[in-house]
Simulated scan of single mutants.
Amino acid sequence: MSKQYIKQLIERKTDQSGLIETGIQGVQLFRVTDSMRCAPAIYEPAAIAILSGEKEAILDGQHYVYDANQYMCCPITMPVEAGTPNASKTNPLLGVYISLDTKIMTELTMELERTSGTLRRPKSSAALPPSLTLSHWDAQFTDALLRLLQLTDSPEDTAILGRSRLRELYYAILKGDAGNAARRAFGVGNEIARTIEFISSRLDQNIDIEEMAERAGMSRAVFHRKFKHATAMSPLQFLKSMRLNSAAMKIASGMNISQAAIDVGYVSPSQFSREFKRLYGESPKDWNHVKHTHVM
């Protein structure tokens, strides 16, 4: 019944399509009533729990759909394409977006590692890389999410208990099917996650694989193998996808095409247009003439 209560709470608080702030930092409710094709996006570390409808994500050409049976956990920043192709007014997408706070997740992961000393193997059968994990709703996650969202009816309760109950939800994620991937991103040996954070903050700069490997403290060959295992992409493929996805989002929000290209490190407009069309199937100019919007 807890999931049904969560759904009813979201229905009550999201009478219109869009994102609704809960008063708890990093936690938002959403309702989507328009069908939206998959469009370039950048998933920041987060968990997304669907209560009604379904979302689609495309990672490295592979399509994944998740709904009320599984929540999605993305513990590291990833370039994806995301959409809600089946959403409608009669079948709205309802859910919760939970940003994963790096400091709190790291503290919990370290405490859990000191206590247990072992990593829990994920049960999920979904063939996803560790950067994108589908996790079954278990009792601990469901109860923690319900307890967190129940606070939103009272500003006082939200202010006083919000942070502690969010921490409880993070702990449930670490203990669930997505826990193995989350611990690898936030715990000891998180060199790939730290490298991705470095890349994401410097998309306008020249970064080569040698610099990435050096920052991770690995040889180029070892770094390449571990990076691809974590993200399903090579380091350079990841960097290119991050740049093009960022540019596509900037263009969709109204930025000039040339400025968007410069902002993500392209000095050649022709190269930018060529690589953009190769990835998305249309030129930046054509892209600019179509409205591309989506919720997370």
Rank of each mutant, 00 (worst) to 15 (best):
S124I: 09
R243D: 03
E81D: 13
S131W: 10
L149M: 07
N180A: 15
R225A: 15
E44C: 10
S258C: 11
P235G: 09
L239R: 09
K240M: 15
A127G: 08
L51N: 03
G217S: 06
R37C: 03
G265D: 02
R147Q: 05
Q4K: 14
G53H: 02
I257Q: 02
I58Q: 12
V80S: 01
E113F: 12
L239M: 15
I196F: 04
Y66M: 01
I42R: 09
G61H: 04
H136C: 12
L149I: 07
D208E: 11
R184Q: 14
D263Y: 09
R12V: 09
K291E: 11
S200I: 06
C74D: 00
N245C: 15
I58N: 13
R31G: 07
D34K: 15
F272P: 01
A159C: 06
E211S: 11
T142R: 01
G61P: 04
T102P: 11
E211G: 05
L9A: 07
L51Y: 14
V264E: 04
V188T: 13
D286A: 09
L203T: 05
E54A: 08
F141I: 02
E168W: 00
L112G: 08
N86G: 08
D143Y: 00
I209D: 11
S52P: 07
H224N: 11
P75M: 08
L19F: 08
E210C: 10
S258H: 11
S131T: 14
F238T: 00
R31Y: 08
N288T: 01
L148M: 03
P85D: 00
P45K: 05
K228I: 09
M78A: 05
L151C: 03
R243K: 15
T118H: 14
R165F: 15
L145H: 00
F223Q: 07
P130G: 08
R147T: 04
F141M: 11
A252K: 00
L161V: 07
P40A: 00
I262Q: 12
N190W: 05
T152I: 15
L134K: 05
S258Q: 12
V267P: 03
I10Q: 04
G254N: 01
A172S: 15
I42E: 08
A181S: 13
H136Y: 13
D15S: 13
I20R: 12
H136P: 09
L236W: 11
R220V: 12
S164M: 08
R31Q: 06
Q205V: 13
T109M: 03
K285G: 07
I192E: 03
P75S: 00
L134T: 07
L145K: 02
L166P: 01
K240L: 12
Q259A: 11
Y170M: 10
R183T: 11
L134M: 14
Q4S: 14
V32D: 09
A82T: 14
S241Q: 08
K277N: 12
L145C: 00
N190S: 13
M78S: 10
R37M: 09
E44K: 10
L100Q: 01
E113H: 12
P92W: 01
T102L: 13
G162V: 06
I24A: 04
D60E: 14
R37D: 10
P79A: 04
E214V: 05
